[in-house]
Design a protein around this nucleic acid. Sequence first.
DNA 1: AATGAATGAGCGTTCATTCAT
DNA 2: GATGAATGAACGCTCATTCAT
Lengths: 208, 208, 208, 208
Amino acid sequence: MPRAVRERQMLDAAVEVFARRGYRAASMDEIAEVAGASKPLVYLYLNSKEELFSACIRREAEALILAVREGVDPGAPADRRLWNGLRGFFAHTAAHPDGWAVLHCQARTHGEPFALEVAALRQELVDVVTQLIVATAAENGCDAPLPWQEASGLAHALVGAAESLAGWTNGRTDVAPAERDTAETLMNFAWAGLDNLMNGRRWAPARP
Amino acid sequence: MPRAVRERQMLDAAVEVFARRGYRAASMDEIAEVAGASKPLVYLYLNSKEELFSACIRREAEALILAVREGVDPGAPADRRLWNGLRGFFAHTAAHPDGWAVLHCQARTHGEPFALEVAALRQELVDVVTQLIVATAAENGCDAPLPWQEASGLAHALVGAAESLAGWTNGRTDVAPAERDTAETLMNFAWAGLDNLMNGRRWAPARP
Amino acid sequence: MPRAVRERQMLDAAVEVFARRGYRAASMDEIAEVAGASKPLVYLYLNSKEELFSACIRREAEALILAVREGVDPGAPADRRLWNGLRGFFAHTAAHPDGWAVLHCQARTHGEPFALEVAALRQELVDVVTQLIVATAAENGCDAPLPWQEASGLAHALVGAAESLAGWTNGRTDVAPAERDTAETLMNFAWAGLDNLMNGRRWAPARP
Amino acid sequence: MPRAVRERQMLDAAVEVFARRGYRAASMDEIAEVAGASKPLVYLYLNSKEELFSACIRREAEALILAVREGVDPGAPADRRLWNGLRGFFAHTAAHPDGWAVLHCQARTHGEPFALEVAALRQELVDVVTQLIVATAAENGCDAPLPWQEASGLAHALVGAAESLAGWTNGRTDVAPAERDTAETLMNFAWAGLDNLMNGRRWAPARP
DNA sequence: AATGAATGAGCGTTCATTCAT
DNA sequence: GATGAATGAACGCTCATTCAT
């Protein structure tokens, strides 16, 4: 069996096992068994548990980023761009729950090397959104440009909300809402707030 | 040294170590050392690694819930109530980053017994928010009551956004924004959207 | 509570726990708990697990020896003396199964210090029987005195048979035979053989 | 080194160590060291301390049963059959003192799983002897058939006597008697008693 | 390309034992 | 006379990793 195929099987197996057990509790024995290969072969191709986990993270992160970017049609207006990006996100996480679990649940909790890699992914998502927000603000010809830090905070909030909804949707045992509905909920939640903000209308606590 | 004091030291140490390493990678040796006690004493008081982790989760979850509930002033209008709850949340997570890490990052990824406990905590937060949303809708005399499932989805989004922002704030190495500012960002992000929704004004994709 | 009483309670507890768990698996914690005393007190009175076990062995061994010796009426004829000794043995082991278990099952299997003590007990039993056999041979005016080594071997066989029957009787869950019947079985089994031997009639394989 | 060979070495080592120390006091470290292998290899092949002990018991029990059965020549008359069985028994226990110690001293005192296995072995021995006794009674055309329970009691006594003599012989540090002599002692001890019993001549205490 | 055989290091847990009071 | 508090040492077991083939 050619190396490329074997390697893909191994990554598939690893993602499945890491998602089920977590990084530490996953054993190379189980991964090798699920992959249908012997343990030394796994080491020959992927060198170590750390590198294997890294490879999983990279593969899944790239796939997710790609899914989001593909959703965004650069020519569309701002709200459509956001809407499409969200649909890409929810569709991909629903279709690859193990990969999403590895990225969202496992990788962030296991020390420097992995947390950094997954933080980079998340930053990329956040950047996509931040640019979207800033660009839209400009596009709308709003009075004052949003400061970058505020846009970044908003983007974090949006990504967090999206992550949370992804978990909520995947965890449902009753009829899971379609990806379309999840995205709509989030747009409903976020859009008006963003729209107001981008046009300088803010909520503020009554200062005493 | 009296037992009660020692037990608290142990829980403190455990929260710190679990936050730093994760459940599996944390060793009872390190926890005992950080607690300044011997390993058998930890076992005498807390029985097992599982029970110790459980005790951490329970303690931190109760403290967080309390902080949120204490922030909410039942007499205030809806937006103030949400605002105050968020401030309680961000203030507490910023003051107890290890506890928050255990709850948010570690406990959810380690099998039934813990995931259930932390899921209960999260549900309690979500419920608080859901009730706030539903109550506000009524209070505002909005046209049609929000369906419970939609309110729940919105609450999940809001809680997720809050969690995400908590992580963002805690992770900053440059000047971390004050808790007040983080809360304001989220209110800005969320309030207008909620307000619109509660009054029947929704965003919808232009159907092709 | 006076020391003598406490000490007896501790030995009772220890015999019970050692019988149930074996020497190694018995924990000083459980013994102290069954004895209704705190662990340091057990150490104050009995110094160590080894000494405690030793004390159990000594107490139970002495009680058993006494029970056997008391059964034997020095004035009676040979078969009555053996008969009464056996009845004493079976009656005592049936009445004190834990003590018997400690002596027969546990003490012999745990290294030099204890094995020696219990070997001494067993030797004492064997000696009683050996003397009985030799004396009887003389008493019967049999032709040639039994060589001591042969008498000793016979005594070992008889004691082993008795031990085996004690275990058999105690282990029965159906109607356990009365001590009297067990003793009679053994006498039936042994007497004729001994009688013949003591009178010079032997079984021998047909030499080819 | 091929697995089968290693496995045998491990069992040999385990029998030796279990015989010397007892089940609880034996450490897997010592067993591995005596076997000349590393501890993980022992676990890889034999799974756990319990299973290892079980495997020892089974192997030694089968070997002992085989030795006894091989001694018995089905065509011979009753006393020869018993005589040969005893010789097989004594020869085997003398040649494999560790195995015998594990079966006789250690396995019986360590909780359900092992006690049952060794009880099964002992019952098999007792059954062989019981059948021998009953068969002989018939063969001798004795007046009334021995009740099975009585025969079983006698068999227990005989097996106990044999076990006791095996221990006696093995424990000797002076010139150990040949297996032949030990067997002869026991035959001398037992045969006349059995012979009488089987022909209805019993010993009975003079009822007062 | 692929694997059976093998291990050093570490972890969760237990226990006999001792002080300070 | 009696105990709550505390620990050093060891044990059963697992796992990532490497050779020799």
